[in-house]
Amino acid sequence: ETMLRWSDGQPNRGVNSETLQWMASELEKRSNGDLGVEFHWGGALFKSKSAVKGVGTRSADIATIIAAYTPKELVAYSVGDIPLPNSDVWVGMRAMYELATTHPALKKMFDDLNLVYLTNLSTSAIEILCKDKFINTLDDLKGVKMRAVGPYGRIFKDLGADVARLSQAKVYNALDSGIVECNQNYMYSIEVFKQNDVAKKLTKLDWGQHLAFGVVMNKETYEGLSDANRQVLQEVSSDFIDQFARRIQEANIKALERMTSGDSPLEVAEMDPNEKAKLEKMGFDTVPNWIERANDAGLPGQDIFDSYMALVAKYEKIRDEKGYPWNN
């Protein structure tokens, strides 16, 4: 029996950890008990920041990686964090999965880091929760004290928001006391952090998602597995995408239902479509920056981006024609 040491920077709560545990139990089941998993949650072994190095040096066999923590090392993979109007979880994850497992630049990047890419995660679509206003137009962002992160945060900042970078765990307090008025978050996560207790206006932005967020394995560990077990690993990793996409969509829907009912419900609005188009245009305008950063790292930036967009289109088509796999 092979015991796989699995490190995750997040605590053992919520959709992510539940689906990762599903993956672990499937591995065990389908390998007839040959592949076991031992989780180390909450960064007990090493922090998310060290995940790339930690798996590369086999401190853990498997870990969750987040490109924002090691932007240079994972620059090719960070294409998934470009703010694009690609908010379908399943489409996004499938596109990233295929890109990471087939594009030569990404394969080489993971290989150089002594990693084998297993599967993808997603934050799901980005929404804006505010204490007492909706973001109907881009002008509504001017002067707003807002907690936001990453490339999305940079765009909010360009639109005149005062962007503060806080961890999601600190936002409740910050919203409650008025240190920030608005927060960039994801539907299920708003409820997990109970932010709907202190902020009641949700602008359903359904913008892009963070997709440079995946699971990797140490190369030697991978090569040490039997062919049969590698086969199992690949199957389970691919099935994970469907499983996770289904679960997180359900979690988002249920969270919205719960938050909009009850004594003190959340109010929901959508951004004006013309304004949202402008916002999406600003997201596209950041593409050249990303391509330049990838080119600086000696990577074919334009080609990676084009391949990614082609894959997004491919899976959108599959979804439109056949629906989600779990509905069939």
Partner: peptide, 18 residues
């Protein structure tokens, strides 16, 4: 070793100025 790798890779932080 970590310093050497950071120089070798040219590692930077995510943010405004990388």
């Amino acid at each position: 070793i970590a310093l050497w790798q950071a120089i070798d890779y040219g590692s930077y932080f995510d943010g405004e100025f990388f």
